[in-house]
Nucleic acid binder design. Structure first.
Length: 212
DNA sequence: ACATTAAGTGATT
DNA sequence: AATCACTTAATGT
């Protein structure tokens, strides 16, 4: 991916002068599927702008139990990282490449400067906060108001959407971890969903039906 | 052939 | 819905 591609991907979001600065100051990075992008407790020196692929963002407690929060797609940035730029600079989330992903990493010192200089940057930041906050709210009432079976259905549907395919390479164990439950329970629920013809399950993969 | 990892099952809380 | 203990099946070396 070269400069022209970057301009292409982000051209609708940012004004030309800002685009130039992004290309100039940013560092291009690639992560392959499954790679860890940000770890909990990691110090944040750059914040990511997503060029291609997708990233999943999770929280984790002291016992290393995790919970999926939301996905980032092209043109998104991580609001949690933005938060880190403001105050204390340790990450309280974990980010992992959901697919092969290209990012442009921008040193955090440009944050504030750009807020003053570029209106498209201000709009972008506000927008990101808004979107992420909305997604967080969804994640919360998902947790509070739905049982595990419904959460699992949502999880599979989102995953299929993000990956653009109904065929998901997942183990029951991975799903259980991301939904913070146990493998046995997931296995049983998947079997139920299969009986309802919503999915078909195989070893290391699940196929989500079209209409789901 | 053997060890490892993923998934299925029944019983219990 | 979680946990335990155990089985079966698939896969890697």
């Amino acid at each position: 991916m070269d400069k022209n591609d970057i301009v292409q991907q982000l051209g609708n979001i940012f004004e030309p002068n800002l685009l130039e600065e992004i290309v100039l100051k940013g560092v291009l990075r690639k992560f392959s599927e499954g790679a860890e992008i940000i770890l909990i407790g990691q110090k944040i020196t750059h914040f990511p702008l997503l060029l291609s692929g997708s990233i999943k963002v999770l929280t984790e407690n002291e016992e290393r139990q995790e919970l999926l929060l939301y996905y980032l797609e092209i043109g998104d940035t991580c609001a949690m990282t933005l938060k880190c730029c403001m105050g204390d600079s340790k990450s309280n989330i974990r980010a992992e490449a959901e697919q092969d992903t290209e990012l442009i990493m921008i040193p955090i010192q440009h944050m504030e400067e750009w807020m003053v200089k570029y209106s498209s940057w201000r709009r972008f930041i506000m927008n990101s906060y808004h979107e992420r906050l909305t997604e967080m709210q969804e994640a919360i009432d998902n947790l509070a108001f739905y049982d595990l079976k419904e959460r699992l259905i949502k999880y599979l549907r989102d995953k299929a959407m993000i990956n653009g395919t109904g065929i998901l390479n997942l183990t029951h164990n991975k799903i259980a971890e991301e939904l913070n439950t146990s493998r046995v329970v997931i296995s049983r629920l998947l079997k139920k969903l299969e009986n309802e013809n919503l999915i078909t399950v195989g070893r290391n993969n699940i196929e989500v039906a079209e209409f789901m």
